[in-house]
Amino acid sequence: MAEAVPVAAESFAGCRARAARTVLGQVVLPGDELLLPEQEDPEGPGGAGERPLRLNPGTRTRVRVVCGPGLRRCGNRLLVTKCGRLRHKESGSGGGVYWVDSQQKRYVPVKGDHVIGIVTAKSGDIFKVDVGGSEPASLSYLAFEGATKRNRPNVQVGDLIYGQFVVANKDMEPEMVCIDSCGRANGMGVIGQDGLLFKVTLGLIRKLLAPDCEIIQEVGKLYPLEIVFGMNGRIWVKAKTIQQTLILANILEACEHMTTDQRKQIFSRLAET
């Protein structure tokens, strides 16, 4: 967090398309146009001289590139729709994945995301679940593990649901399920009693869920606890006592803007008590 973010000055010009390779890790702004490696203009600035000599330049290697959140394909152009840092990940085959690592609080449902929702209404066969998006998601009573027409799941209004989106696009009502493709719950379903639900930014959720995240490992050493992370920015925690639960919630909320040293200080203080 401490490192300075190099804002590329020319990005304010907006209209100039830049090669995605050169702005990796830099801030990109909505409206910027990116050029993929195979699209790079040979007549571009500095391009002609530096380009390595290629055998039969007529045939271009068509590698598939995935553009993740924050990027949009427009014909053959790649446009930025969110502001944040441009990230890239190599994948086994193809040109890898590009996405924008952005900070935001508003959740937009995405197919396949696991989220925490609150049941707001029960109408016939369908539950309405508030997931923090623009519209409540629908959840069928049959979309639970072991549920049949006769054997209804015990879901009440106000319950917390941990589920996954199967339908989520800009034109349709989002739909959730609490089973995977094999019909197993895999941890999804109604989240147990008690515990505390709070909201954080979407960026913090991803930060905490990163495989090399130290925060979670340190938190895990403090008390016996259970956490559920929803990609919609909701975190549910539960520990043995209410006091511990509150401490955990506060730590997780605060660690977004703490340096490593500050965090370690707090954790050592908590471990003493």
Partner: peptide, 10 residues
């Protein structure tokens, strides 16, 4: 050759 994918999971 550009595939859109809106999920962070990938």
């Amino acid at each position: 050759f550009i595939i859109e994918e809106q999920s962070f999971l990938l």
